[in-house]
Design a protein around this nucleic acid. Structure first.
Lengths: 206, 206
DNA sequence: TGTACATCAGTGAACGCGCGTTCACTGATGTAC
DNA sequence: TGTACATCAGTGAACGCGCGTTCACTGATGTAC
């Protein structure tokens, strides 16, 4: 018989990662308000004091969970870019769909990521860096679009900010159930994303 | 001597309105997290139990403050629309500037207005109605733009949602200090609003 | 290979705090006569 | 016009709760010899 590796119950092994995972789970199951330090510790199966071995305070833990979210957001955008089901859309539209998919699947995680202004500390810096990496993916898509002749020679930062703002705002409105056509079921969320990015592509000027 | 109307200290007169005003003040001075029922009552100069004469619970009070915010948001858009300093911009751009001005002047109020999903109760319904009135102003601007031949014959709801999402997302990113060009002082917030709405007007397609 | 020991990731009890909410009350107001 | 009284918007003390954080501790781990 193989000597089964019995994980110790006292020493966790990788509590930091487990706490972040527990936070993600809580955000999904109970929402942002329920994601307290004590709840995260309980979800991870440790005492309320345990997280302090890995995080200075609750804000640092939240920042680490936000960082995780930015990583997943980037992955969602990359996955949508490569999604064959979206191949009829332009890369920028596919990226937007990825963003919206993450938002709709993780509404409270998104809220946490963009809750409040920037703060001090290493975890907050790491979260900001992860956010910039996600933004950089959008910038790459735009640059490539220019090379492929799909995108006008408008300054990339201006377009990236506008595209990010559009899809970010749309995601938050969707997540907040604030759009009447979606609430009534008249329009599917993804259709709205596509139509909005298309509008940004073609412009509203007569 | 005229008989001066001495306001009673016991009976407030219009505590409901005073509580909403106190909430607005707290949002501006201390932020969203500090806007508790007890803090609002203290700011209004009454005991913590007094608000219960006017609101069922703290959520109803928050919804009433959000409603006030939507009213102010609509006013800010209408004011920008009529602002001679912005007369070189299109009506849609002016409306966006008004939105952004409200956001930058009242970041935590905006966060409250869009915090969390919809809830039950008369105050929440009133807040939603006020939000729809603000949205209706945008719809009017678009309809007028079509009549004036400035706006393409694209479905109004689609354009209204896209424009709202763009300016909403941009405002939240500005308010969260999440845009590097603004943080570094390279671009002024209003310039970003104008350039983004212009981009939505002209499109990014080559 | 076996033992002593330093390390440090965990425990669990406790703390003070501010929160939302309740309840019996108080006193200013306005109306009926 | 003056008085009795019903109304109801306020008080203030109290409640239970869950929060973030601390502290002395415990016990599993891995290393030195």
């Amino acid at each position: 018989m193989a000597a089964v590796k019995r994980p110790s119950t006292y020493h966790h092994g990788n509590l930091r990662a487990a706490l972040i995972g527990a936070g993600v789970k809580l955000l999904a199951r109970k929402g942002l308000a329920a994601m307290t330090l004590r709840a995260v510790a309980a979800q991870a199966g440790v005492s309320p004091a345990a997280p302090y071995r890995h995080f200075e305070n609750v804000a640092a833990l939240a920042a680490a969970i936000a960082e995780e979210g930015f990583g997943r957001l980037r992955e969602a955008m990359a996955a949508a870019l490569a999604d064959p089901a979206l191949k009829r859309l332009s890369p920028l539209e596919r990226t937007g769909c990825g963003y919206a998919r993450f938002a709709l699947a993780n509404p409270d995680h998104l809220r946490l990521m963009f809750a409040g202004p920037r703060q001090e500390g290493p975890e907050h810096a790491a979260a900001a860096a992860a956010g910039e990496r996600a933004f950089a993916l959008l910038v790459e898509v735009i640059e490539q679009g220019k090379k492929d002749g799909l995108v006008r020679q408008v300054p990339t930062p201006a377009l990236a900010v506008a595209a990010w703002a559009l899809i970010h705002g749309l995601s938050l409105l969707l997540v907040g159930d604030q759009l009447e056509p979606v609430r009534s079921g008249a329009v599917a969320p993804e259709a709205l994303v596509v139509s909005s990015v298309k509008l940004l592509r073609e412009g509203w000027a007569a």
